[in-house]
Design a protein around this nucleic acid. Structure first.
Lengths: 341, 341
DNA sequence: CTGAAAGCGCTTACAG
DNA sequence: CTGAAAGCGCTTACAG
């Protein structure tokens, strides 16, 4: 910047102004400075800028994994919404471990983000405290907790599970199963577990045993998980009529396993997933699922943050937001009424 | 930090040392400082640290998209390799647009990363110049250019295409097609195009017409792309015997379209994809593909960068690396010898 | 083993 | 419309 100011024959202050508020500088000076910038290939140092302005334009996003289409969509939606306002996403992934999440929160805080977006509503005590004390907007996403740390953008995973169960019951099925992952290890999918809980609750309310709610393997689930867990299920209950998989990924794996075993879907087995992954729609037969707009979670979160971070009137009250984007039941080809017999 | 030093009754210098080189501080002082840090919940400001040390511990990764399992694997592999050494990834996605890539390179440079990882070997002139002048290690990934800007970690997409063609020809097929995306728009998949080029070259070398190399839609490809493009292909050449899709994603879409139309794979049509996405293995029938270890590209890139950035002897010569991780042909169930008739 | 001084490259808050 | 001074919170490079 000194080089630029010297070449243009102005103060550093003026160079800074040309970059930040060009309209405050006379046109003659401005073009002179711009020319110098071009000539030197000067790229301003935002690290230095961040330090003096006390704003980094970093937003941290802490997600379970990058390799899940839903979270990738959320990250891309968030990054897209923030990019226009020149924010850079700092992505961390926890591998579904709360312990890892805590480490990431601490490491991220040292980068002084202007806001933190974090998947989930359950954190370690230390992570919770750090987030509370951070003094920046915090948005918990992918669920809608009763009492968020600060803001929340998501939907009720518990209600997703309930809806899945109601759908299968409404089709006349009585021997109903669910496929999820275990939550006794270091890596656990708490949102998947919430869906399982809601599912089991509706089963019990309908007087149906919830003994076929299977938790196998650790998060994240995979196509293999779906295939393997379906095999476990069939061994345990050959008479099973309908299955809910906590993720479309598992649902696809389960469907493929049915194909391999010659089990007709939906005639012999109804199957519903969650997430509306592209692949669920493409499968033959197309998989019924509960859709949640993952990219929209990212976009809404981004818009919420911009409205907080970029508001002109710094003294305007910030109302704590809790945005429920809801979900939709998509009945496709893998769920059908119980066939007598 | 001043607060900590005051509370511990030492200079800021000593606090800084406790954090950076604890062994240089006497145990008594160290524990006193640690206690003060804990008590105040002090998290050092790495922005300030970066400015004075001239190292940010940021590594920029510029990828086409976050929502592709292969690139997500690479990003995760890279982040994982760098995390141990306390580097934070700055991810940008170009949506397959070189113009967008240039904007991202410029924006990223302002964050003063210690290195830049960028997918692809073709960039705009301005982006190329900025990268060349950046004065930091640059790693081009997902291809192995003859003359990289600096380093490269990848494999030959052209050779992947050649291998796919050789495989289909070796099965006795003569009416052979390929499914890719167009490269005349703003968004273009140049690596997919390289695979197509290699594929077409082998076809011609074998005296086979390359008129069925179809480029439809713009990058990125999707399941839908595979389904739609297969439909186009069948209309154009109902007698087609074998198909190469530039991505497993397209291959899966094409396979599902075959299912819908009652076309038997591989009896009536052989199909091979690229990328070894999880879904390709799970499909029924399992899709033959050419495997590339996307996560390894990330890991190898991370290791390469660490060896450059963390080497003790700053004067040791850095030899320009060009790492070819290769690829494997995975013959599964969708490619079979031509059936007479 | 510990510390005082200088400085990293910007922006803030003035002043004129 | 432009600029001189101070300072953001650390680390570097000394010195003792």
């Amino acid at each position: 910047m000194s080089d630029v100011s010297r070449l243009a024959g102005v103060s550093k202050m003026t160079v800074s102004r040309v970059l930040a508020d060009p309209e405050l500088v006379s046109e003659a000076t401005r073009t002179r400075v711009m020319k110098a910038i071009d000539q030197l290939g000067y790229v301003p140092d935002r690290i230095a800028g961040s330090l003096s302005s006390r704003r980094t334009n970093f937003v941290t996003a802490i997600l379970p994994t990058l390799t899940n289409a839903n979270f990738a969509d959320t990250a891309q939606g968030l990054a897209g919404a923030l990019r226009a306002a020149d924010y850079q996403l700092l992505i961390g992934y926890t591998m579904y471990s709360l312990k890892e999440e805590e480490l990431i929160v601490r490491a991220m805080l040292a980068r002084r983000p202007d806001a933190i977006v974090i998947a989930g509503t359950v954190h370690t005590k230390a992570a919770n405290e750090m987030l509370l004390r951070a003094g920046i907007p915090i948005v918990e996403i992918w669920d809608v907790p009763e009492h968020p740390i600060d803001h929340a953008v998501g939907f009720s995973n518990y209600e997703v599970g309930r809806l899945a169960a109601r759908h299968l019951i409404s089709l006349g099925h009585r021997r109903i199963a669910a496929l999820g992952s275990r939550i006794d290890g270091d890596a656990m999918d708490l949102r998947g577990e919430a869906r399982l809980q809601g599912f089991a609750a509706v089963l019990r309310e309908a007087g149906i045993a919830d003994d076929l709610v299977i938790r196998e393997g650790s998060a994240p689930v995979s196509y293999d998980h779906g295939a393997r867990t379906l095999a476990t299920l069939l061994q345990r209950a050959p008479d099973v009529e309908a299955v809910f998989a906590v993720s479309d990924i598992s649902a696809v794996g389960a469907l493929m396993e049915c194909h391999r075993r010659g089990i007709k879907v939906p005639e012999a087995l109804s199957l519903i997933g969650f997430g509306d992954f592209d692949i669920a729609r493409q499968c033959v037969p197309a998989i019924s699922t509960i859709r949640v707009d993952a990219a929209m979670i990212g976009r809404k979160t981004g818009e919420l943050l911009l409205s907080i971070l970029e508001r002109d009137n710094a003294s305007a009250p910030i109302t704590q937001s809790r945005i429920d984007i809801g979900f939709d039941l998509l009945i496709r080809e893998t769920t059908a009424p119980r066939e007598p017999g």
